[in-house]
Design a protein around this nucleic acid. Sequence first.
DNA 1: TATAAAATATAGCCAAGGCTAACTAGTTAG
DNA 2: CTAACTAGTTAGCCTTGGCTATATTTTATA
Lengths: 158, 158
Amino acid sequence: MSDYEQQNVPPSSDSGRDALPPVTQHARQYETVRNAHETELIEDYVELIGDLIRHQGEARAADLASRMGVSQATVSKMIRRLKELGLVNSQPYRSLFLTEAGQTMAETSRARHDIVLQFLRALGVRDSTARIDAEGMEHHVSDETLAIMQQFTEKNAR
Amino acid sequence: MSDYEQQNVPPSSDSGRDALPPVTQHARQYETVRNAHETELIEDYVELIGDLIRHQGEARAADLASRMGVSQATVSKMIRRLKELGLVNSQPYRSLFLTEAGQTMAETSRARHDIVLQFLRALGVRDSTARIDAEGMEHHVSDETLAIMQQFTEKNAR
DNA sequence: TATAAAATATAGCCAAGGCTAACTAGTTAG
DNA sequence: CTAACTAGTTAGCCTTGGCTATATTTTATA
């Protein structure tokens, strides 16, 4: 089956576009993505709780469930985690509050989200698409890129 | 504790920046992100296998493990999934091949990745940062946005 | 003020994607 | 040609984030 014996074929001048990055750097890239995934959902919940409090005065589990598009059981479980992480406070059967740490996270996350969203709009992406893309992208944009996006939006945009 | 009784506070003119999107639209945004997460890893593996084949002539599990930064056991398990999904072929203990479907996915994924990466460079992001961000962002960029990124890169860039 | 309805919580299930440890197959060197 | 090393596999464990079904608490209404 495998008749390849050449382990280290030098990229034969150009086997196609960019060369592969060095192994350790490559691994670090994927690791960064995996780390982002761990915090992503947490941030989304905290951000949403903050938004609900701001826009409707309170955050209830049922609202989280319908806005997230998941079951109430899933939300309940998530809230337990958020409490364990010290991001949320609540009495059983009552609405949710953010701790100091939670508020900080909510604001940071919201700011990030807005910068990405406005950047996409400034680029010329339709609003509904921009919203979807921003939701997914926000957790994978470095501070460096974020700063550049912000500048871009200021120069162009509106 | 909770002394909020007003459920539907109208966004009081401006409780802050953008209003919340309608519930169903909001739920769809998160759903899109969840869906992306399901295929993300699969695509990353397939893309990497394609890259390894192109650049070094063959793709071995050990290379995947070191480049992904995970254990060989994790890679083995993943390869089983990829085979079940009809994306990869291989004999036990031998190197990996992409099926038709796998090649298609690898190419699509690679193209997407390149567009995002080049866009970030064109924007002025440093190469090492651009690589990390592209790795995370590529799965969350819609076709619409992708097209716009491509145009942007062509106009500016290099 | 009971009681029905709505909201929240808990229990228990599942799949995915990590891990380590132990085993097996292939490859290479003495 | 066999022994040692390297590569790949398997088993079994853990956490996360979904789900449904069932209990419990709060709230609203007859």
